[in-house]
């Protein structure tokens, strides 16, 4: 009996070795994303009242939490969705382990035209209770407001017109449409959007990991093309589709990405 087990064990070990050898002959590489957070080009300092946006609001940033999903590569008009293992990634400025996302997909080597991600989660995937464990579960978006998850929680404070430090919760998720009676929502708006992170051709090597550094410049949420004024919108936007629409418009200039060699 024991001998059989040893034999089986050895076969398994040998088999796993050959598999390893086999892998090396495949000409594929992997992609990894590294998220970093800036404000007006400099490393973001949290809880520091030192930033002034285009609307001239003096503000601080306490924390940023968001979902990036559906990383896609484009080649000759074809789309390659990278969705092995997982297709939605959570980033949290307080949790360093969320700053790196190493995708599990084996990507055939060759030239690609561009790379995009979805900011937030698309309507087919954004289902309530798909994340039951924290920290992702804490992003839930109330059923009454459309359900699923917050795409973004950007929390901080700004000095209002009376020179009082006031909290803001710049939260993005499913928007609602209300009629003039102000009753229950009569419809919902999907506010997720696609961001093209790389728009010039790049080469996937025959092996190894290609690393893309993705910088979010927080101040860009409040400008380009639309100037977002805290004094006009107040501290909360989850039930203000007009404000969330501005966030969506500004969202495409928030990210800057570049390949890194290390």
């Amino acid at each position: 009996m024991r001998r059989i087990i040893i034999a089986v064990l050895s076969i398994l070990i040998i088999a796993s070795c050959t598999k390893e050898d086999h892998k090396e002959t495949d000409k594929t590489a992997r992609l990894s994303l590294r998220f970093d957070h800036l404000n007006q080009g400099q490393s973001l300092l949290v809880d520091s009242l030192m930033y002034i946006n285009a609307a001239n609001n003096l503000y601080l940033v306490s924390e940023i939490q968001y979902f990036i999903s559906d990383v896609s590569l484009y080649k000759n008009g074809e789309t390659h969705l990278l969705d092995s293992w997982k297709d939605i990634h959570y980033v949290d400025t307080d949790l360093p382990y969320t700053w790196d996302w190493e995708l599990k997909d084996s990507i055939p080597s060759g030239t690609y035209d561009s790379l995009s991600v979805v900011f937030g989660i698309n309507e087919t995937k954004n289902q309530s209770l798909m994340f039951v464990n924290p920290p992702e579960s804490l992003m839930f978006w109330p059923e009454y407001l459309g359900g699923g998850y917050h795409y973004l929680k950007l929390n901080g404070k700004w000095k209002d017109e009376d020179d009082v430090l006031r909290p803001y919760n710049y939260h993005l998720g499913i928007g609602q449409l209300y009629d003039e009676t102000g009753g229950d929502p009569i419809g919902f708006v999907q506010n997720y959007f696609t961001v093209t992170l790389v728009n010039e051709s790049f080469e996937f090597p025959e092996a190894g990991i290609l690393k893309l550094k993705v910088d979010m410049d927080v101040d860009q949420w409040f400008v380009n093309p639309e100037i977002f004024d805290f004094n006009q919108w107040g501290g909360d936007i989850m039930q203000k589709q007009d404000a969330m629409a501005m966030a969506v418009n500004n969202g495409s200039t928030v990210f800057n990405a570049h390949w890194v060699s290390d």
Binding site: L129, M139, F140, E143, G147, Q239
Partner: peptide, 23 residues
């Protein structure tokens, strides 16, 4: 569960976080 309402859910949960706390 609404910001314009009593605004308790961000810290005390709801349907998507039925522990009713974030801990």
């Amino acid at each position: 569960t609404t910001e314009e309402g009593a605004d308790c859910f961000h810290c005390h949960g709801g349907y998507g976080n039925p522990l009713f706390t974030t801990h």
